[in-house]
Amino acid sequence: MLRLENVSKRFDGFYLDNISFELKEGFIMGLIGPNGSGKTTLIKIIMNLLNQDEGNIYFMGENVKNNPMRFKENIGFVYDNLYFYENLNVSDFEKIVASFYKNFDNKKFKEYLDKFQISKKTKIKNLSKGQSIKLMLAKALSHSAKLLILDEPTSGLDPIFRKDMIKLIQEELESGDKSAIFSTHITQDLEHMADYITFINKGKLVFSESKEFIDENYKIIRSSKEMLDNTNIDFIKRKDERYFSEGIFIESGYKNSDNISKATLEDILYYMGGETIND
């Protein structure tokens, strides 16, 4: 569905460097990385809000530059905040956004508002953060978008709403003809929903792998410094503390044991967030 080939963008003091990955229909890709890693820049480029300096983006096999309006029609986007005229109400919001999408379904939008318990009479400024996210999600799901792009949508929200939102997104993708990119620093949200993980750090692609591969191959070992010194493990990153040492490595042959365990996405972000594999 979506394919990036060597996408690069240079700013003063920052370089998004040759990002490539592919997302197929019916799957969810988690986009992770420390603050300032380039996630939002990459999303803006995918959204055609920024022009890349190099590389190409393909949607359904077609270069996005050849038909940007078709691409925008097929994107449902959810920010971490609702940037809209505060004194307008939800009904006004509906009329404005509906004018941008030829496939906007007012009936479906109303169904989502009812489900989220949002009144059309409510002013934007009176919506809570959770309600604002729900409103954007209702809009994103009401114009037959094939690709959902969610940029930190669960940041600052309570766990109950986060789980409900994740469940809703998964339900929307059950048909198999939609996909989603979910950018977040809350890695727990991706543990049970993401099919693929793309990790960006300092503008570089660290990896883009299936969640299954990550679960099976990324390991954490914790032991004494002496023991780790005498292993033949090729560590991606190692930390030596006063009383113990820890390290993250990739190896399918190592089984979980008392001192070796599966690395979670949080572990990977913690250990590898300070540098890329190639640094």
Rank of each mutant, 00 (worst) to 15 (best):
D215N: 05
K211M: 11
I248W: 09
K204D: 01
E209I: 12
Y254V: 15
F244E: 07
E212A: 06
T231Q: 15
K202N: 02
I200F: 07
G253M: 10
E241W: 04
I248V: 10
F213Q: 05
Y243T: 03
E246C: 11
K211A: 08
K239P: 13
I221R: 09
G253P: 06
L205G: 00
E241L: 03
M227R: 14
S224H: 09
D229H: 08
F249D: 06
E212W: 08
E251N: 14
Y254S: 09
K202G: 02
I197A: 02
N230V: 06
T198W: 09
I221K: 11
F244L: 02
F235R: 05
Y218A: 00
G253C: 14
L228W: 13
E212K: 10
K219T: 07
S208Y: 08
I248M: 08
I220T: 01
K204L: 10
S245V: 05
G247Q: 10
E209F: 15
V206H: 06
F249C: 07
G247W: 14
K237H: 12
R222T: 07
E241H: 05
I250H: 12
F249I: 11
Y196Q: 10
E216L: 11
K219A: 03
S208F: 10
D240W: 03
F244R: 07
E251H: 14
I221P: 06
E216R: 12
K202F: 01
G203I: 12
N230I: 06
R238T: 13
I221N: 05
F244G: 01
K211G: 07
G247M: 15
K204C: 04
S208W: 11
D195Y: 02
G203H: 10
K202W: 03
I220Y: 02
M227N: 14
I200P: 00
S224Q: 10
V206I: 06
K225D: 11
I233E: 06
T198L: 07
G203R: 12
K237S: 13
